[in-house]
Design a protein around this nucleic acid. Structure first.
Lengths: 254, 254
DNA sequence: CGTTTCCTTGAGTCGTCTCAAAGGCTGTGG
DNA sequence: CCACAGCCTTTGAGACGACTCAAGGAAACG
């Protein structure tokens, strides 16, 4: 299985060898021959923040791996209210394999680099190799799990807890951890205050107030409105709610 | 494809022939031989409301098709706050194929009848037939879509809109439609007020007040606290939010 | 028939929203 | 390099919606 194919199956482009998607993404489900075949049809792009990747009800003609940056998935009501229903980080797979009943909208939140494939190429390969579909099932199950996890935040938590939970989620996804055991973290916020408010189901004024409060309380530092430093992850975790005050670990009780 | 196998592949139990899961559920992915094989390991149960089907962090030793009734999927914070993250109706498939990172809890909301299989039987069959895994992927994508749809309700809508949206969702899933073009509907609420409040992220008092309001306004009628009649589905839809007042259809604008 | 659980209704409080204005980045053109 | 415009963010004051607490009523259960 893990025999070295590097030498003779030279059809694999060099950039695949160091690609995140090859190691941890969808491409990891492909054997070298299939990867080489798929790679021939691939192309890399970089898109600026705000660019629409999948439009509401719009036909999608390609699938992509996210290589860097953050993509926001949104849904909106026709009166303008909007909800961010998911964020995608590298090496997530972007695209709706079988169109869902309801429309979704994908937009680059930061500068995003993508590796795109024609829709047909992926779909054909999926028919041939169950491994690929299996990998897709796993990612979908993961997204479902994340969506449900976030439903708890949306439905149960207070505004301060929501903002803390958001920061923690971002720190875990794109934070460069500093210190032993990731006791602190540092990152650029991929979303504006307005985006964060759409994600958390609160107003941007409330987001701003809660960030200020976390800053005043010394839980985080903010530079240039974007760069966030979390000095103590555990203090941030305490503010996410769901833990009995004074306890650090969940208590299993019946 | 649709050649009659009834006669010679007599290994299929009679109860499968009229089963919802065979027609629209997971079993529809199986050819007669495989269905017969799987059916040998299956068993039917009926469970009362409140019975736990999948416990938090508990090993799940079987998968099931929901044949009737409603199952609620919940997640909770350790301080007791709880969120219903999904409802399952017949012929949904119940069980976590590959355990998710976060724990989920499943409980019968009404009397539920199930058709259960040993975990191993399903997993083995899934390896053999990609069709089955494909069907599972489709259901998972559907559930993801529903979860995201509900996130919009949780994050964007007001309490009156949430309650109206909930009633509409239930009516569409288990309502017996009356009149032409499903202009009205009738059903038993599968959830208590407390459950509904856990689903909508509001308190049960608020749920009760909003139901009263819908009743006062003549949008619904309620008998015995459980039986709901919606006389005009369109009036209910208008109360779900997201439509410009005075409009019945979505407006596509750029 | 009492007990329990669920549901409804009311009154007062609190959290979040709304509206408004000022402050801080960023980029552009003079 | 500075002035300006535009956008995002912060902060404040007041309003409103949903929550909390509390009590009473209605089904369901043994």
């Amino acid at each position: 299985m893990t025999v070295r194919h590097d030498v003779h199956s030279s059809g694999i482009p060099a950039y695949c060898l160091s690609c995140q998607a090859r190691r941890r993404g969808l491409c990891s489900a492909l054997d070298p021959d299939r990867l080489a075949k798929l790679a021939k049809t691939s192309s890399r792009h970089s898109v600026e923040p705000g660019v629409e990747l999948i439009g509401d009800a719009e036909a999608l003609n390609s699938y992509s791996n996210v290589l860097s940056g953050v993509v926001k998935l949104t849904k909106s009501l026709s009166d303008g209210r909007q909800q961010i229903v998911g964020l995608q980080f590298a090496p997530d797979f972007l695209g709706q394999p079988f169109k869902a009943k309801s429309a979704i909208h994908a937009e680059a939140a930061t500068t995003v680099s993508l590796c795109s494939f024609p829709k047909a190429a992926i779909e054909q390969m999926m028919k041939q190799s169950p491994e690929l579909e299996h990998r897709l099932l796993r990612q979908t199950l993961n997204e479902l799990d994340e969506a449900r996890e976030w439903m708890v935040t949306l439905g149960c938590k207070t505004a301060p807890e929501k903002v803390a939970s958001f920061l923690l989620m971002i720190a875990r996804n794109i934070g460069s951890s500093v210190g032993p055991a990731a006791r602190s973290a540092c990152f650029d916020l991929p979303l504006t205050r307005a985006d964060i408010s759409d994600f958390l189901g609160i107003t941007n004024e409330t987001v701003s107030r809660q960030l200020t409060r976390l800053r005043m309380d010394g839980v985080i530092r903010i530079e240039n409105n974007r760069r966030v430093t979390v000095d103590s992850m555990s203090r941030l975790e305490q503010r996410c709610g769901g833990r009995r005050p004074g306890r650090n670990r969940p208590i299993y009780e019946t």
